[in-house]
């Protein structure tokens, strides 16, 4: 197991990591998610040994590895911009780590072909880096990071720069590769779809702190705070202020922060109702209606469209409600 304990990193006045603790179980994928600038890349750099923490430590199998230089850690890191060597061919890039590990030539060749095949780039060995598309570069970078069989593979927003279709295709491929090789993976992203698509465990970060960790299911059902709930994709996140407004209007019973699924928001036309329709959109086969009630916008799943401005009554069914502990 890889464990990060009380790690602190700051750049001048900016605290990038504020006493962060994280444990990464082996053979599974841990996704660290958070908005840009939250310190998630710095966390990877600390684990890789590229960034020395001011305090705290990183343990591998219970032994501290803080003094071990990056090249002796055996952790792979795939960079956001790939950092492929422009002066080397695809094959030489993928085989780089193997050459550093002093594999013999024949073994390197075999392993490089195997890795390129794995990422769907069979026959690319002699190609030059400059002529690859973004998706191809991503695959080469993945193959290069995988080739030396790293004890932990870290990926820093590995598909963030690519278009959506390619992203979902690559996500599927990566998932099957990670599972197939039983890799220990730390995957950094700001995208909830990537996180839930890949993760066995998720850690949500903000401003240098880890706010919440857990399995995707647990995290979804117990987001704990309004910030985390919003960030992982809950659609009706009611913070304390909104809860007070809704409770005063009689829409909910008690003024506590919560999330409500759109399906649990029932909307019916009522000329004297407390709310009105802000907009009604047709998305993926259903109508999604936004109603404003007591100054709070709520998203409701509806079977038919409602004209903007329609006065409505709003009722919340309790099985769609998840209670939150705090706002942030």
């Amino acid at each position: 197991m890889l464990a990060v304990t009380d790690v602190r990193v700051s750049f001048g006045d900016l605290v990038a990591l504020r006493d962060v603790a994280l444990s990464v179980p082996l053979g599974s994928t841990t996704v660290v998610m958070g908005p840009s600038g939250c310190g998630k890349s710095t966390l990877l750099r600390v684990i890789a040994g590229l960034q020395q923490p001011e305090r705290g430590h990183v343990d591998w199998m219970g032994e501290p590895i803080d003094g071990v230089p990056p090249h002796e850690r055996g952790f792979g890191l795939m960079f956001q911009d790939y950092a492929l060597f422009p002066h080397r061919s695809v094959g030489a890039n993928v085989g780089f780590g193997l050459r550093m590990a002093k594999w013999d030539e024949a073994a390197i060749r075999a392993r490089v072909s195997e890795m390129l095949e794995l990422v769907g780039l069979a026959g690319y060995t002699t190609r030059s880096i400059g002529n690859l598309s973004g998706g191809e570069q991503q695959r080469v970078a993945l193959a290069r990071a995988l080739a030396p069989s790293p004890r932990v593979l870290m990926l820093d927003e590995p598909i963030g720069a690519l278009d959506r279709d390619l992203r979902s295709a690559l996500m599927r491929e990566m998932r099957s590769i990670f599972r197939g090789l039983e890799l220990s993976v730390i995957y950094v992203t700001h995208d909830q779809h990537e996180a839930f698509g890949l993760a066995d465990h998720i850690a949500v970060m903000r401003s240098g702190e880890i706010l919440r960790t857990g399995s995707p299911e647990h995290l979804w059902n117990h987001p704990g705070s309004a910030f985390v709930a919003r960030f992982i994709g809950h659609e009706n996140v009611i913070d304390r202020k909104a809860a007070h407004q809704l409770a005063a209007a009689g829409v909910i019973d008690a003024p506590n922060p919560m999330t409500i699924t759109p399906e649990a928001v029932a909307v019916s036309p009522a000329p004297t109702g407390p709310g009105h329709v802000v907009e009604s959109r047709f998305v993926t086969g259903r109508y999604r209606t936004t109603v404003r009630v007591a100054g709070v916008d709520l998203l409701a799943a509806a079977s038919s469209a409602m004209p903007t401005g329609t006065r409505v009554g709003v009722t919340i069914s309790p099985e769609g409600v998840t209670h939150l502990e705090r706002d942030t």
Partner: peptide, 22 residues
């Protein structure tokens, strides 16, 4: 770019190798 050196380091290249290879 520093990134390239860091990439080499995470792939197991010591500082001298990094200099030679990158």
């Amino acid at each position: 770019r520093t990134r390239l050196r860091e990439a080499a380091a995470t792939l197991g290249a010591d500082p001298l190798q990094t200099w030679r290879e990158v």
